[in-house]
């Protein structure tokens, strides 16, 4: 059983359209979606998360049809580019936010996230204001918050693109390690082949709203028939 199955997904945003995208992500797989800016990657992720309306197609999460489900009932952990941390809450309150929304008391919620916090090594940050976090720390906190609900799928929208090169590499390795530890299927959007090489099991290449090719990075780099795929991978 796949973690995520997208079938013929079509959606419009102004004059741009994501057209008939079909894609499967296996249980525990780390899938990277690559493409140039404006290729429709982030729009596709938002549709998976239930944050934008789709025109046609189906989305299934562990064989559960979530196409018409509100975002809050999908149980997908979403990390946007800047982490999307709530500036009016400190780090701990950000991390336990989904649990308190679900009705847990703060103390119980804190106990519930202890393992995630320890795994990411962010115990020392818990009482800090999010305004004082570095880019890498922000992403770790955002990841901890996304994992707090034990999501069925983790969706990362360019999570390391604003970081410097060494931090980007460290954060990518950390993402991969945590993803393996929690065994959560992950879709990660990025532009960079290096980034994809650090984390991905498989890669999908998007161009102008279409999913051109899917495979391992090596397979795509050597065997794809699409010029756009070759251009993107060689440009990197």
């Amino acid at each position: 059983m796949n973690a995520l199955d997208i079938t013929d997904l079509t959606l419009r945003a102004g004059s741009f359209a994501v057209q008939k995208v079909s894609l499967s992500v296996g249980e525990g797989e780390y899938f990277v979606l690559m493409g140039m800016t404006g290729s429709g990657k982030s729009l596709l992720l938002k549709a998976v998360c239930g944050l934008t309306q789709i025109s046609a197609g189906r989305i299934r999460l562990h064989d559960r049809d979530i196409t018409a489900l509100e975002a809050r009932f999908r149980n997908i952990g979403y990390v946007p580019q800047d982490g999307g941390l709530f500036p009016h809450l400190d780090v701990l309150r950000n991390i336990i936010f989904p649990l308190t929304v679900a009705g847990q008391k703060a103390a119980a919620a804190r106990r519930a996230v202890e393992g995630i916090v320890a795994s990411l090594g962010i115990e020392s940050l818990l009482s800090r204001s999010v305004a004082y976090l570095s880019g890498g720390e922000r992403q770790k906190v955002a990841l901890a918050r996304a994992l707090a609900r034990r999501p069925e799928l983790l969706v990362l929208d360019e999570p390391v693109c604003a970081l410097d090169e060494p931090t980007r590499r460290d954060t990518c390795r950390e993402l991969r390690r945590v993803q393996k530890e929690f065994r959560v299927a992950t879709v990660h959007v990025c532009h960079s082949r290096d980034e994809a090489a650090l984390v991905s099991d498989r890669v999908g290449i998007m161009c102008e709203g279409r999913l051109l090719d899917v495979g391992t990075l090596d397979d795509l780099a050597t065997g794809s028939d699409h010029g756009a795929v070759q251009r993107l991978l060689n440009w990197n």
Binding site: G50, A71, R72, I76, Y78, G84, F86, F97, V101
Partner: peptide, 23 residues
């Protein structure tokens, strides 16, 4: 940030009350 709140389990009302209004 409201969108993020939706993915974390908030209804529209909860996202307003817990995120947008405090901001």
């Amino acid at each position: 940030l409201e969108h993020v709140a939706f993915t974390l389990g908030c209804s529209q009302w909860q996202a307003f009350w817990r995120v947008s209004l405090p901001l």
